[in-house]
Write a protein that binds this DNA or RNA. Structure first.
Length: 272
DNA sequence: CTCCAGGCTTACG
DNA sequence: CGTAAGCATGGA
């Protein structure tokens, strides 16, 4: 167990803003990072962590070395976003594992958060390893590539199941360099991710933001769409897909290179 | 019953 | 090219 002194970090906001799906709060927050249990809680401006990992990995996972003051100054373009920064101060992006992030957000398409959470939990129980009683690792590409559609049916992914199995097979065979995307630019990484069946611009943006730390990514979903309409008077008439493209472009120009952080504050506000 | 949920693919003009 | 239906599943 160790303590990390850290300003402008809020563990509750960071873990309950919808970016991660597998952390649970009792007294401590409990989650699985890189296949091992991590417990964390926050007391008196200190982050208390119980984990077999070194402190550096935890700092990296919670992005505690981000210069959040500079980010706030950069995205704080008006009093609306400034009030959200104030309201949810300390919400930080989390550096997720790319594979888990990819599969999780592939499951998110046309789905509810409740359904996504349950599907992911079932996948971990069926195809992951039990690390500790009741806690399972996220299934590796290899583990999923051994599964059949029939095996997967109990996870209730619906039409997403064959897409997940397909990319699991491709990654397991080493035919898609998922982890190599971290070295690509935002645009190039997006191009690569969108070659995956079941990954369009929104899911690619989520993976680029939550796993690869491309902060210029601004995923637009129904929640962001609604709050951007409320906050910034977006009333683009036309098909949904074009409307979302316009919003993302606007946000990149308006909030700047850290717009991914702005997205998370807007998203949490819309979750309520 | 119908509609919608952190969208994407396919097909049609 | 750009746009609309269809898609599993489950809750409101």
């Amino acid at each position: 167990m160790y303590r990390i002194k850290i300003n402008d970090f809020n563990l509750d906001h960071s873990l309950s803003c919808g970016q991660v799906f597998r952390w649970e709060k009792k007294d401590w927050w409990t989650g699985i990072v890189n296949g091992a249990i991590v417990r964390a809680k926050q007391e008196d401006g200190e982050l208390i962590v119980e984990s077999s990992f070194h402190k550096e990995l935890i700092v990296d996972y919670f992005r505690l070395d981000d210069d959040i003051q500079q980010i706030y100054a950069s995205i704080g373009r008006d009093e609306k976003i400034a009030s959200l920064i104030n309201k949810y101060r300390g919400l930080r992006l989390i550096r997720q594992d790319p594979w888990e992030c990819l599969v999780t957000y592939m499951c998110s398409s046309n789905n509810t958060i409740w359904n996504i959470t349950n599907s992911i939990r079932r996948m971990c129980e069926c195809f992951g390893n039990e690390i500790e009683k009741g806690f399972y690792s996220f299934p590796t590409p290899q583990a999923l590539s051994c599964a059949s559609l029939c095996d997967m049916s109990q996870c209730r992914l619906g039409f997403r199941a064959p897409r997940v199995l397909k990319i699991a097979n491709i990654v397991a065979k080493g035919e898609f360099d998922l982890y190599g995307i971290k070295d690509l630019s935002y645009r190039k990484g997006r191009e690569e991710l969108m070659k995956i069946e079941g990954v369009g611009n929104k899911i690619a943006d989520c993976v680029l933001l939550f796993a690869f730390g491309k902060l210029e990514s601004f995923p637009v979903d129904t929640h962001i769409e609604q709050i951007m309409e409320r906050y910034y008077g977006f009333n683009f008439k036309g098909p949904k897909s074009r409307k979302r493209d316009e919003m993302a472009e606007f946000a990149r120009n308006y909030f700047g290179k850290y717009c991914g952080y702005a997205q998370e504050y807007l998203y949490l506000e819309d979750l309520g």
